[in-house]
Design a protein around this nucleic acid. Structure first.
Lengths: 240, 240
DNA sequence: CGAGCAGTTGAAAGAGCTCAAAACTAGTGG
DNA sequence: CCACTAGTTTTGAGCTCTTTCAACTGCTCG
């Protein structure tokens, strides 16, 4: 059930049997959400953390003008609101983009972990710092990359993040159950311009996004096109 | 010496005498940096964390075209690279914007803390999650706010962050030893456009930035103008 | 078959960029 | 005390990317 979550952790550190047992024991219940449903609302006290098991979710900030800015996409295996453990409430909601299945871990279990399992605590601390690194990279896309580069970069990021949890096909493609409007909200542009950018990318032959799937013709050329450097995803095993 | 750092922590939680003693004992040495010097380089192993004592610093990402994107501004009291403790290396450098004085805390001391002081560990975990919340708010500025709103929002954020460490004057103004080009790199725009935006803000009478100082005429009107909601700074005392 | 949503297209307007040069400021050395 | 330099701020004009608005297509589903 939380296998993808373990895969994600194991890509960055070693976890021993006791730690795995603690993680498994921490999960309390499972829930299902439909597209556009709020998984964790903003500005309210939070008592659980949420692991995404299947589907696509996002951190979302509603704007004054009715629009919204997405600040991170979550793939299966992600602890989407682990930061709520220390923050106690969220500044941004966690919303389902596609149909999602999640597992809940009560804050009380996480707190126990911080009292008894310092190494696992550091691993989870690391996990939230990884989210922050992803935020910083998105800031670079939003502030300094063209629409096309930003989209290419997003696809490169998702490709790697999905690969480590076993969700990339043999041909290098992957499911991305989102609309062009969702992607536009990630990259701070209008749906119309996202549509033109997708067409531009399609015409370039480097990659395509259609029917909720991303196809990548040549990942190396795609990375070169947008200057993608995977360093910020910290894909090296290291004792934390 | 680390009084501003303690002020920042105390704005969000209670810290007892033992914890304060541990923090004081953790500091090893002090260093001074001039404007534009790199305090912590990116992509290299890191063995210390760095507290900013005085000055202004930033997290900086160099771009292919020679420019750079700043992803967070650091004010005195900030643990600028606490995330390096779990990440082991930084994806973005920490650079001095003005003359800076910093204090070093070896990773080994932080690790000891995680083994013996779980509450303080949670406080520092919280601190890195607060940085992530700031990143998310910057993503909103970069993606969804106009240049003027983004600048107003940045000034509102700095006003609050500086206030809790005692660096806002009686008249509501504060020192911001940065150039317009630095601010442009924060908000993902050109120096020329930043200049026009500063002039726009000046003409509006809401705030001004000149000679390394921000003057705010009416903080409430400034907040209203850009839709600033201080919630993401988590300025409430809470047992973490 | 109509409703609704996602995707697509076109044309005009606007925000921000680029390039280039001038004005201002502060520090330096004679 | 003044000229000199370097960095910062300011200004102008044309251009590009992105937005806005509005319409139209295609698909899915009740």
């Amino acid at each position: 059930m939380i296998e993808r979550h373990l895969m994600k952790l194991r890509a960055r550190d070693e976890i021993d049997a006791e730690e795995v047992a603690a993680i498994r024991a921490a999960v309390s219940e499972q829930r299902r959400y439909g597209p556009d449903q709020t998984i964790v609302p903003a500005h309210r006290p939070v008592y659980n953390c949420t692991i995404l098991l299947t589907g696509l979710a996002a951190r979302a900030r509603d704007l004054r003008d009715g629009g919204r800015q997405l600040t991170e996409l979550h793939v299966p295996g992600d602890f989407m609101d682990l930061h709520s453990f220390t923050l106690k409430r969220l500044d941004q909601a966690v919303v389902a983009i596609s149909e999602c299945v999640v597992a809940l871990v009560p804050h009380a279990r996480v707190k126990e972990m911080t009292e008894t399992l310092p190494h696992l605590t550091r691993i989870y601390w690391f996990a939230t710092n990884l989210d922050a690194a992803i935020h910083r990279e998105w800031a670079v896309s939003l502030g300094s990359r063209s629409a096309l580069e930003a989209l290419q970069h997003l696809f490169c990021e998702l490709h790697l993040r999905l690969e480590i949890v076993g969700l990339v096909d043999g041909d290098g493609g992957f499911a991305l159950p989102a609309t062009q409007t969702d992607l536009a909200q990630c990259l701070g542009m209008t749906p119309v311009h996202m549509n033109r950018t997708v067409q531009h990318l399609r015409a370039s032959g480097l990659a395509d996004f259609q029917g909720g799937r991303v196809r990548i013709a040549d990942i190396n050329r795609l990375r070169a096109a947008c200057g993608f450097d995977p360093g910020y995803l910290y894909l090296e095993r290291q004792l934390r």
